[in-house]
Design a protein around this nucleic acid. Structure first.
Lengths: 275, 275
DNA sequence: AAAGAATTTTCATAATATGAGATAATTGCA
DNA sequence: TGCAATTATCTCATATTATGAAAATTCTTT
């Protein structure tokens, strides 16, 4: 269950918006560590730069995170793969925003965004977790999740799922998602921001597993209704081209044996064990 | 020497601008892990969100980093403490930029920046490591580092230090830094960007250890020469007020015993062992 | 200077990370 | 479709190392 490795890493998780500063004692108390262990963990995490001393005995998230984020902004392969198609989706004077989102644990995170002209006032910007059951961006990811995971999600979030209108029973929930899957994309009205329409298409890694979504968001009054279908098709094509770009990366890094061959898809990482 | 904990964390370090994508095999080869161990590490790091599968068998930095960076942008105590004074340092129509930098490992990282009017074209922006021996921002941090660490740094970077004009011997190096320490701040001309003048003051955590610097950067032609001294004094005062703000945080989080008392400064974290 | 608190170190022990190899899953190619 | 090659996971005995208790050290406060 609790390996040292996982424990060490999860220590970072207690640093939140509401509690950005922790003393060693508080960490030990919160996580049930001995003081000595807490000091050791904090020490390791500080050495790695994930945490940093901010004052006497007080720690906060460290500068390495900022550095790593910069690395992502400059050379993340997911962003690289999406950059061009995201720009291509922008039309002038429509006030739209294109978002690239990632599935992570049981949350969807907006990781990149592109806009032109006026920037739409989105409540969910880069780095902010999106609600899992509301908004095209998240729903379209849900739609392609394996059934076992959806079952778990349903059991754990029944109330929220019902409130989002995704069904009262597991069967209704699965059916609602199947509909989206058949359409190939999801279109929603004002589920996250009032007066905003979103269309999203799923993004896959290798072949089968969803890793995120590509979406485009319009202010209601400037949404090109007549061209909605064409837009959706364009979005799907863009998402597909990201998959293809990403696929190329599987072979890019130098292999130890000097050969280059395709790899298969393993049990998806990031899946949380149900035990 | 190499604890599992440290090994796990340092796995992230091979992901760089030049090598943003790694296969498990390549990781194992590079770091001397068994394949099984490499899979385990990658698995743990993916669960933590620090890494993510980008394609079949290929991994890149994960979305959690983006999320944590957002958390920092929104509520980092170091930024909070600096925000107000940084804004106060900005005067209209001067084209200056105010930087808040952090010491991390043997590097100085620009972690926050504020500007007004036109933004100065700085080659070193948020998240980018600064050269340790060039520029006011770094030098002023060096100046307050403990002698033991400086000695190590000198031995390891003799060539670079000489090239930066900081001395040919350890004694010259220490003397040069002592000068800065006496002045209380560092002023440099075009050491990082051509045509740019920088002034920096050290920022301390509790009492004694430097954790970063606060600096202000001007285009040469708009630098208010006559008010340089006043500006330096203002900068020092601002840096001092950051220290005071940070000091308050040491007591803010709830202590386990319900008491609130000051803690002492431990052996500085982030110091790399010389062994 | 002495008491008190915060860190770090030490050390015996228990926990668990590790590598080797077996096994399963997936892909490429015939 | 089946076989070979390769990737990914699993099992397990063993050695490593993480852990807590307590001592030692460092720093603060009185």
């Amino acid at each position: 269950m609790g390996s040292s490795l996982a424990r060490l890493l999860s220590t970072v998780d207690i640093f939140s918006q509401d509690a950005p500063v922790w003393t060693v004692g508080a960490i030990a108390a919160k996580l049930g560590y001995t003081r000595a262990t807490a000091y050791r963990y904090v020490g390791e995490l500080c050495d790695a730069g994930l945490l940093t001393r901010i004052a006497q005995g007080a720690y906060a998230l460290g500068p390495r995170i900022i550095e790593l984020d910069r690395q992502i902004r400059h050379g993340d392969p997911f962003l690289r793969a999406g950059e061009r198609v995201m720009q291509a989706l922008l039309r002038p004077n429509r006030g739209q925003v294109v978002l690239l989102c990632s599935l992570f644990r049981d949350r969807v995170l907006c990781t990149h965004q592109a806009s032109r002209d006026t920037e739409l006032a989105l409540s969910y910007t880069r780095g902010r977790p999106m609600p899992l059951f509301r908004g095209a961006t998240s729903k379209v990811i849900l739609a392609w999740l394996p059934e076992r995971r959806l079952t778990r999600l349903f059991l754990e979030n029944q109330a929220e799922i019902r409130k989002a209108g995704l069904g009262r029973t597991r069967e209704e929930f699965l059916a609602a998602l199947k509909t989206i899957r058949r359409q190939g994309c999801s279109v929603t009205h004002a589920e996250i921001d009032p007066g905003v329409i979103g269309i999203a298409a799923p993004v896959f890694d290798g072949e089968r597993s969803v890793i995120g979504s590509l979406s485009i968001v319009f202010p209601e009054d400037r949404f090109p209704k007549s061209r909605a279908d064409r837009l959706a098709a364009e979005l799907k094509r863009a998402a597909e081209s990201i998959r293809v770009e990403l696929g190329k990366l599987a072979e890019a890094p130098r292999r130890e044996k000097g050969r280059s061959r395709k790899q298969h898809t393993p049990r998806s990482r990031g899946e949380i064990s149900v035990s």
